[in-house]
Amino acid sequence: MSGIVTVIIDEKQITVPEGANLLRAALDNGVYIPHLCANEETEKPAASCRLCFVEIDGFLNPVTACTQQVKEGMVVRTRSRRIDRLVQTAFELLLSNHRLGCAKCARNGSCELQKIAKERGLKLKLTRLKSVVQETPIDDSPETFVYDASRCVLCGQCIWVDRHRVKVGAIGFIRRGMSRKVATFGETGFAKSRCTQCGECVKVCPVGALIPKAQG
């Protein structure tokens, strides 16, 4: 019957609807693949975090799982030397522009970076790269949350919910390259923007960039 396909991920046979997203299929069936920029609803993830690499039989090189659709008989591996190297490098690149110091971070323990490091046996410190974290002012203008750009990993989850779920359009990516960041129009800070402070973006932030304000 068309509509249901069988794929093999890490020697585990799973059946999923045809055309489903490979990353989703793996996650829903208990195979963990690191990821930051994709969520359950993104049809076309930006594929910008470069963490969800997998090897698929018939493909010459590792590919990002979030941009693949499952096909009948697909054979997928989530770990290999090549994948681990790619993910390790991508992870360290993210860390090089992410202010570390987990002990002082409100997301300590629930941080997606910590989870990825634990799953893949990666270090939460820089070994090959220099830290290029810029000292940016923390925006504590909203009443219920705080934005610390130096902890942002540019996954774009907050922007996605802002545009597609709550449909406000207060935040977006600005500038380019090393200066890229999430900001409001004119970089006014959240309180002066059209942000409604619904707090949805805070819920989806995988790291400590958007965190609820401590009570009291």
Binding site: V168, G172, R175, R176, A183
Partner: peptide, 26 residues
């Protein structure tokens, strides 16, 4: 000018921060 970006965003019906993002990208 910011006023121009706001006016453009309003006219083409996209969030103003999107216009700002393009203006700062290039």
């Amino acid at each position: 000018p910011k006023e121009a970006m706001l006016q453009i965003a309003d006219a083409v019906q996209i969030p103003e921060v999107e216009v700002y993002g393009v203006g700062t990208f290039y």
